[in-house]
């Protein structure tokens, strides 16, 4: 008897989200199959998006093998971003760490101006992360959204403490939100429900928080996997959004990555690859050689 492999067809669909505009436009998500289940009925129309992370201040304690590929541009975020473009990124992820009250507590205006200049000077789409301080982000992120109105940037983190203010600014100024919740599918859904009362769900990307290899990657993996399953298999509208895995920072915090270069690249590479397999649509890395390694591995 001839063997016929079973073929699944699911009713859910990850929303296709558009970020950037003009030639910078990127499409994310859109799949109606589970991650890499190409053998099932359906498609995964958009390739994963790889971004390298740029900080708005010179990183104080970075390991030499992490800053080495960037050389002296690391003190200038715009030059740093341009250098990243040369490494074949799809997008740049700018982290506004200087605005953190625990860092420099830099002003919202200054941060917004930097984002605006960067949008003007780089050729790739921009992802902007605030410091993550829920309170400060209610000043910084709305300002960024206003100053860059109409650019359709991907802005976050929008958290349960500040989703009303930050989400509203993202809505009013034509951007896409990164909805972030702390590694919990029930909280993740709750935030999306609340956010989508005023923000169209096709303008939301989920950041479930990414942990690195050896430091809780299992949680991130199974959470991302589950978000995709619930969205695609059971068609739960509030989990049918693409996922961003912002993992570079988490990986390079580890002792193992700092110890030596090869180990660092592999640490970040394995983390990225794992979360991609789990279903992440956007991956934010720090080292250009990891980017190369991961692209080669998955052939994208």
């Amino acid at each position: 008897m001839e063997y016929k492999a079973p073929k699944e067809a699911y009713k859910g669909l990850v929303r296709e989200v558009t970020i950037g505009k003009g030639d910078k436009t990127l499409k994310v998500g859109g799949e109606n199959i589970l991650p890499l289940h190409f053998f099932d009925e359906g498609s995964l129309p958009n390739p994963p998006i790889f971004a390298l992370e740029v900080l708005d201040i010179e990183p104080a304690d970075r390991t030499p093998h992490l800053i080495e590929p960037f050389g002296d541009v690391i003190s200038d975020p715009i030059k740093w971003a341009k250098k990243c473009e040369g490494f074949g990124v799809d997008a740049i992820c700018l982290a506004l760490v200087s605005t953190d009250p625990a860092e420099k507590d830099a002003s919202a205006d200054g941060a917004a101006q930097l984002v605006k200049r960067m949008v003007g000077e780089i050729k790739k789409t921009l992802i902007v992360y605030g410091s993550g301080d829920e309170k400060k982000d209610t000043e910084v992120l709305p300002k960024v959204a206003q100053v860059c109105a109409g650019e359709n940037l991907l802005i976050g983190p929008v958290q349960k403490e500040n989703f009303e203010v930050v989400g509203k600014a993202i809505l009013d100024n034509g951007h896409v939100a990164i909805a972030q919740s702390p590694l919990d599918i029930n909280l993740l859904k709750e935030l999306n429900v609340k956010l989508c009362k005023f923000l169209p769900p096709e303008r939301v990307i989920i950041d479930p928080l990414s942990s690195s290899l050896g430091y809780g990657i299992e949680y991130s993996f199974s959470l991302i996997e589950r978000v995709k399953q619930i969205g695609i298999i059971t068609k739960d509208s509030m989990t049918m959004m693409p996922i961003i895995a912002n993992l570079g920072g988490e990986c390079w915090k580890t002792k193992q990555a700092k110890e030596n270069k090869t180990q660092g690249l592999l640490w970040e590479g394995i983390t990225a690859l794992s979360l991609y397999l789990a279903g992440a649509n956007i991956l934010v890395l720090r080292h250009p050689e990891t980017l190369k390694l991961v692209r080669e591995t998955i052939g994208r």
Partner: peptide, 12 residues
């Protein structure tokens, strides 16, 4: 378990 739990389950 027909829909995923969240504290906002009545608001959807």
């Amino acid at each position: 378990a027909q829909t995923l739990y969240s504290d906002a389950w009545l608001e959807i």
